[in-house]
């Protein structure tokens, strides 16, 4: 399965303390590696690496997110390796 490395930019009402641990759990469940590059109440950027289909699944999961968070949009862009 082809692997990819992408920057996922999540926008919405993201202020709940539950969100970053939730992202870490969901990524781990999918076997993805990730690193939070930016986090505030309106935007979270994560660099995420793994099989492309599972990064798709990460996006689907994040669109729902935990109940106390509302995700408005998710943008994805490739991150150059190196």
């Amino acid at each position: 399965m082809p692997t990819a490395r992408e920057r996922m930019t999540i926008r919405g009402s993201l202020g709940a303390d539950s969100f970053l641990p939730w992202i870490a759990r969901h990524a781990a469940r999918l076997g993805l590696t990730g690193e939070v590059r930016h986090a505030d109440a309106a935007r979270v950027d994560i660099d995420i690496a793994g099989p492309a289909d599972l990064i798709d699944a990460m996006e689907m999961g994040c669109l729902l997110g935990p109940i106390d968070v509302w995700i408005e949009t998710i943008d994805r862009a490739p991150v150059p390796s190196g």
């Binding site: 999918l30 798709d56 689907m60 729902l64 935990p66």
Partner: peptide
């Protein structure tokens, strides 16, 4: 409404939109 142990995929896009709409 929180996917929890479920792993929604792109084929589940309608379900995801439905759950988001319920949540909103």
């Amino acid at each position: 409404l929180d996917p929890g142990r479920e792993i929604p995929t792109r084929a589940d896009l309608t379900s995801v939109a439905y759950r988001r709409w319920l949540k909103r």
